[in-house]
């Protein structure tokens, strides 16, 4: 598996990362290096082995349906670059 320059541009855009054009070739090399390295895993025979989601053999911890949180509007908004009347305010984002 390998990526092309177009793949890198697309992934950057999807991740909202502004990668300068002159960095793209270098990134293609780096990413393909990582992919090659991971590719080694293909050498292991996994025939008949079920895919594992987690190595933790532990049941999913659960919570009761009780309101125990919230009511901290000022904390929630504290790091927002802009807020007004209790709302986050962001650049216009409507179609």
């Amino acid at each position: 598996m390998s990526v092309t320059a177009d793949d890198v541009r697309r992934i950057a855009r999807l991740a909202r990362l502004a990668e300068p054009e002159d960095r793209v070739d270098a990134l293609v090399g780096e990413l393909n290096g990582i992919l090659d390295w991971i590719e080694q895993l293909n050498e292991v025979d996994v025939e008949g082995v079920q895919a594992m989601t987690t190595p933790v053999a532990f049941p999913l911890p659960m919570r009761e349906d009780k309101v125990t949180d919230g009511g901290i509007r000022d904390k929630v908004l504290a790091n927002a670059p802009k807020s007004d009347e209790g709302f986050f305010v962001v650049p216009k984002s409507v179609e």
Binding site: V76, G86, F88, V89, S93
Partner: peptide, 14 residues
């Protein structure tokens, strides 16, 4: 997202 509270911004309620 609320788009009609301000002409240049979107207001977000989480």
């Amino acid at each position: 997202s609320i788009h009609d509270l301000d002409p240049n911004s979107t207001y977000v309620d989480l």
